[in-house]
């Protein structure tokens, strides 16, 4: 499964290291994270990680492999 997650705000490079398994690209006012998600546990784990770092998830979608 591959996912694309958009969070509000432009993430610093340092903060992006909290998601080493995802690639990051900063677009105006948002950061796009994308990459493989192993399973549902990983998916929920990611959500918790965003939340615990105070990041606001704007969009979360599965993309074709």
């Amino acid at each position: 499964m591959r996912y694309e997650i958009r969070v509000d705000g432009e993430m610093s490079d340092e903060l992006a290291t909290a998601f080493p398994e995802l690639k990051t690209s900063v677009v105006p006012t948002q950061t796009v994270l994308y990459g493989p998600v192993d399973d549902e546990a990983h998916l929920y784990g990611l959500l918790v990680r965003f939340q615990s770092l105070g990041l606001r998830v704007a969009e979360f979608r599965r993309i074709p492999d």
Partner: peptide, 12 residues
């Protein structure tokens, strides 16, 4: 005016 993620930026 900025667009950085709020918490990380401000904490820094």
């Amino acid at each position: 005016a900025g667009h950085s993620t709020v918490a990380d930026f401000l904490l820094g």
